[in-house]
């Protein structure tokens, strides 16, 4: 009986995008419900919850990541237009961004170098392999740039992609509370920090709450992507 179900329901379904599209959407809605349950706490991140739920289902059903992604790629595609959409809060707050360009430049360079150097250094000190250390270097920028840089310097691009998203979730979960603790209550600082340290995932968290934060997050993602794509390959030119 269960064999029959497997043959007539599971096999045809798992070949269409419908199944994994529904599972991904369902898991995210579940994540949102859980977050509401914890009265909107950033700790109950719907991104983290849904990645855990979907990963468990994919692993339990012995589905390969490739066949999962074949279905879920439609959701992944929308990341493009969503990144473009960050231009709207950016344009609306352009005067404030322009007035703060000096600060943005200094904070960007400080934060970007901190992320690259501390990531590589910690892995190296704790005895990680060179592959992992190099994969860690570009992890704080937007996933496509991070993967391209990782290939360039000899890291593992798929590991870099996973680190970029997990790091973004961490920045989204801990960032705001940590900056509050440091007595920083400024959307410019919160937005830029999210964009520089956590790229899209952390930016999404700030952007959903404040438009000015969204503008500075957009600047942070774009400029840090640019800076990292240029300096990381130069920094690791001689470590191959």
């Amino acid at each position: 009986m269960s064999n029959n179900v497997f043959q007539h329901v599971w096999i045809p379904l798992s070949a269409t995008p419908l199944l994994w599209l529904a599972v991904t959407l369902g898991a995210y809605v579940f994540g949102l419900v859980i977050q509401k349950w914890f009265s909107g706490s950033a700790l109950a991140s719907p991104v983290l919850i849904s990645i855990a739920v979907v990963s468990a289902i994919v692993l339990l059903t012995r589905t390969t990541y490739q066949s999962y992604f074949a279905g879920a790629q439609f959701i992944n595609f929308l990341l493009g237009p969503a990144t473009i959409a960050l231009a709207v809060p950016l344009a609306k707050n352009i005067d404030l961004v322009r007035h703060n360009l000096h600060s943005i430049g200094i904070a960007l360079i400080a934060g970007s170098l901190t992320s690259i150097i501390s990531g590589v250094l910690i892995v190296w000190v704790l005895g990680g392999t060179k592959d992992v250390a190099l994969s860690m270097a570009p992890k704080s920028v937007t996933t496509p740039i991070a993967m391209a840089v990782s290939i360039e310097i000899g890291g593992v691009p798929a590991l870099t992609a996973a680190l970029a998203i997990l790091g973004g979730i961490l920045a989204a979960i801990l960032g705001q509370e940590m900056l509050h603790r440091l007595n920083i209550r400024d959307w410019r600082a919160h937005g830029l920090a999210a964009g520089v340290a956590g790229s899209g995932v952390a930016a999404a968290q700030v952007a959903a709450r404040n438009e000015l934060g969204a503008a500075f997050a957009a600047v942070g993602i774009g400029l840090n992507g640019l800076l990292t794509a240029i300096i990381v390959p130069l920094m690791f030119l001689f470590w191959k």
Binding site: A107, G119, S140, G175, D186, A189, A194
Partner: peptide, 22 residues
């Protein structure tokens, strides 16, 4: 190394960027 590196460098980077910007 992956866990400590990821958590450590993300926290440091958020704090430094936010602090310098502020």
């Amino acid at each position: 190394p992956i866990l400590v590196g990821l958590v450590g460098s993300t926290i440091l980077s958020v704090a430094i960027t936010g602090f310098v910007m502020h």
